[in-house]
Design a binder for these strands. Structure first.
Lengths: 354, 354
DNA sequence: CTGAAAGCGCTTACAG
DNA sequence: CTGAAAGCGCTTACAG
C-alpha cells in the first residue's frame, strides 16, 4: 500500500514512496499505458496514436519526468556524449570555442565531457574508454598514431578542430592557415616592408607549419627576401618575447614580424617596446593570428588574421549532425578562410595612409 | 558456436564475434569464473580470494577490458560524473581552474561534464537532470533560488567555487576577498596615497561586494577618505576602461584605483595611458585582483592580489572526496587568504623605494 | 570464498 | 496502434 494516488488523483511530482527520480514506470502508471508506450511517446515514434502521445507527454511534463541518460545509453549504445579534448589554456581562443561549442551541443541535446591531460594525449584514453562518447572533438592537441588507432578500432568518429594530421581517418575543421599567412605577406609587402621575419609557435603544430608556409610563399611571390624564421618554441607569450629579442640580435634590420599567433605577437610587441626600445609600427610592424579579444585592446591594437570561429563552430556542428546519422561517409575536411583585421601594429600601404 | 577460444586459448582483445566492447561476461568466460566474481575483483571487494582477484584482473587487463560507466551507474546510482557549470570566458582565471580541476578529477576516476548556458543559469537544468551528476561545481555563476532548490530536492551536493550566496545549503570554496581588499587599502595608504577609488566588476557578485567592502573598510581604518566607487558594470576590460574615464571625469585628483579584478584593472590602465595621458604609477596607482598570467607581463606589470588557485582546487577536491562518502555532514565553507603581488603599477611605500 | 538470480531504467523486435 | 517480454552490462543481497 505504498502506492498513493492510484486513481486519477493528481500526484505531486515528488510524491512517490521511494527516494529517487521519476521513471517511465511512474509515467506509465499515471497515464494508464505501458512503459513501451511511454517510451514511444517520448521518442516521437511514428506508430503511436497522436492522442496517446499527447496525453503521455503531458503527464510526463506534469510529473517532471527526465529520461535517464544511462539507461537509455545502455540499450541504444549511444551515449549522447561528445568528448571534448582540450588542454591549451594560455590561448583564450580555446576556452571561447569550448564554451560556444558546448552551448550548441546542449541545444542538440548532447552533453560535453571535458577531457584534459598532462604530457601525452594518450593519458586521456582510460577516461575515453569508460565513457564511450558518440564522438570526439579534439581542440589543438598534438596527436599520436597510437591515439588515433584507438578511435579507428572503436569506430568513434573524431573531429580535429584547428589542427590536423595527415593520413588520419578524421574529420577536420580548420582555418585556412596557409592562405592566412599569404595574406599577411602580401599586405606587408604592399606596405613597403623589405625585411620580413616569422616567429614560430609550436614547431610541429599544423597551424604553425601552414601559417609559416603561406607566409614564406607569399613573401617569395612578392619578391621579398626569405624571412628569418628561427626554430619555434611554443604558442606562448614568452616564446614571442624571447623570440623577438633573439631575432633582433641576429637581424636588427628586420622591419616586419609575423607571429605564430596573437599571444606570441603580444609577447613580441612587449619585447620590442620594453627591451628593444622600438616603436610599433614606425620601427617594426607586427602581425598576429587568431584575433583574440586582447588583440583589439588599445594597448596592443594588433593587426591580425581573424579565425572564422563562428563559421568553424557551425561546420563542426554540421559535421557532428552528419556523423550522428550513422551513415558511413568519409570524414570531411574543411578549411575556412580567415580575414585580415587591420589595426595599428602594422604600417599601412602608402595609398591608404591618411 | 560463435564462442571461439572457449578453452585456455589466448583470445586476442578484439577477437569476439559481435562488434562492440569487452564486457564482464567476456572476462568471466576467459577467467573461468562468474560475472559476479569479475565484478568483485574489479571493485576490490574484500571477500574475494586474493589469488582469484589477481587472475581476473590480469585477464581483464590482457583483454583490454574497461567497465561500462552507464551500466555501472545504472545499478549503483552514482554516475561518476561531476558537472562543472562555467560561463565566464573573458577572465582567463576560469579556463585555468576548469582544466586543472578536470585533471584532478580524472585522477580520481571522475568525469567532468561541462555545462554552459546563455542568459539564466536555469537553462542548464534540463541537461543536469538528464545526467544526474554525483556533484555540481559552480564556477562564478550568479545563482537563483529556483536553481538552488533543484539541488536541495535532488540531493545533489553543490560546491560554489569563487562566489557564494548566503543561506544556500552548498559548500563554498573562495578566496577571502574581503581580507584581500583590506590588504590593498593598507598597502596604498602606506605608500602615501590620499584619494582612493574602486572600480567595480559585476555589482551583485560576492567577489565584487567583498573586495569592495574590504577595501572601503581598510581605507577607513587607515584614515583615508571614503573611496569613490561608482555602481559597477561587469568584470570586463570595457568596464575598466570606461569606468576609469568616468572616474577621472568625476574625480580627477584620484591617486589610487583598486579594480574588481585584473581584467578590469588592465582596462583601467589602458584608459589611463591611452585616453587620460596619465603615467602609472607616477600619476595614479592601479591594483587588480586574481593575478592572471597577463598581470605579470611587462606591458602592464600589474600589482594585484593573487588568488590561491591551487589551494582552492585542493580544497575543492577534498570537499568532493568528503561528499563522495555519502555521509550527511553539513557542507563546509572555506575562505582562503590571497597574497599581494607587488609589481610596478602601484607606488611603493617611502621606506621601500630604492 | 563463489555463483545464480534479480534488478537498475530504458528501448525494441515481436505478437496481437 | 499497444503491450508483454527480452535484454543492454553491470552490482549486490542471498544462498551455499
Amino acid at each position: 500500500m505504498d502506492d498513493a494516488g492510484k486513481d486519477g488523483v493528481m500526484a505531486p511530482a515528488g510524491g512517490r514512496a521511494g527516494r529517487g527520480r521519476i521513471t517511465v514506470r511512474d509515467v506509465a502508471r499515471e497515464a494508464k499505458v505501458s512503459v513501451a508506450t511511454v517510451s514511444r511517446a517520448l521518442s516521437d515514434d511514428p506508430t503511436i496514436a497522436r492522442e496517446t502521445r499527447e496525453r503521455v507527454l503531458e503527464k510526463a511534463k506534469e510529473m517532471g519526468y527526465a529520461p535517464n541518460l544511462f539507461a537509455r545509453g545502455l540499450i541504444t549504445r549511444k551515449s549522447g556524449i561528445v568528448a571534448l579534448l582540450a588542454n591549451n589554456i594560455t590561448n583564450p581562443f580555446y576556452p571561447e570555442v569550448t564554451v560556444k561549442l558546448t552551448r550548441r551541443l546542449q541545444e542538440m541535446n548532447l552533453h560535453t565531457m571535458l577531457i584534459s591531460w598532462e604530457d601525452s594525449v594518450e593519458h586521456s584514453l582510460p577516461a575515453l574508454r569508460q565513457i564511450a562518447p558518440d564522438m570526439v572533438v579534439v581542440l589543438a592537441a598534438t596527436m599520436t598514431p597510437d591515439f588515433l588507432k584507438h578511435f579507428q578500432e572503436s569506430e568513434t568518429p573524431i573531429i580535429l578542430f584547428n589542427r590536423y594530421v595527415t593520413g588520419a581517418r578524421a574529420s577536420v575543421v580548420c582555418c585556412d592557415n596557409e592562405a592566412g599567412g599569404a595574406l599577411v605577406a602580401a599586405r606587408l609587402a604592399a606596405a613597403g616592408h623589405r625585411r620580413p621575419a616569422y616567429i614560430q609557435g609550436l614547431a610541429t603544430a599544423s597551424t604553425n607549419v601552414d601559417r609559416m608556409r603561406g607566409f614564406l610563399g607569399g613573401c617569395e611571390a612578392a619578391g621579398l627576401p626569405t624571412p628569418d624564421a628561427a626554430s619555434g618554441g611554443d604558442f606562448t607569450y614568452e616564446a614571442g618575447y624571447d623570440g623577438m629579442k633573439a631575432l633582433f640580435a641576429r637581424a636588427p634590420s628586420t622591419d616586419a614580424v609575423f607571429c605564430g599567433n596573437d599571444i606570441v605577437a603580444i609577447g613580441a610587441m612587449d619585447a620590442a617596446r620594453c627591451e628593444l626600445g622600438l616603436r610599433i609600427p614606425e620601427d617594426v610592424s607586427i602581425v598576429g593570428f587568431d584575433d583574440i579579444a586582447m588583440a583589439a585592446w588599445p594597448s596592443h591594437d594588433l593587426t591580425t588574421v581573424r579565425q572564422p570561429m563562428n563559421a568553424m563552430i557551425d561546420r563542426t556542428i554540421a559535421e557532428i549532425t552528419r556523423l550522428q546519422k550513422r551513415e558511413p561517409g568519409r570524414p570531411e575536411q574543411h578549411f575556412l578562410p580567415g580575414r585580415l583585421m587591420i589595426r595599428g601594429s602594422a604600417r599601412l600601404p602608402e595609398t591608404l595612409r591618411p
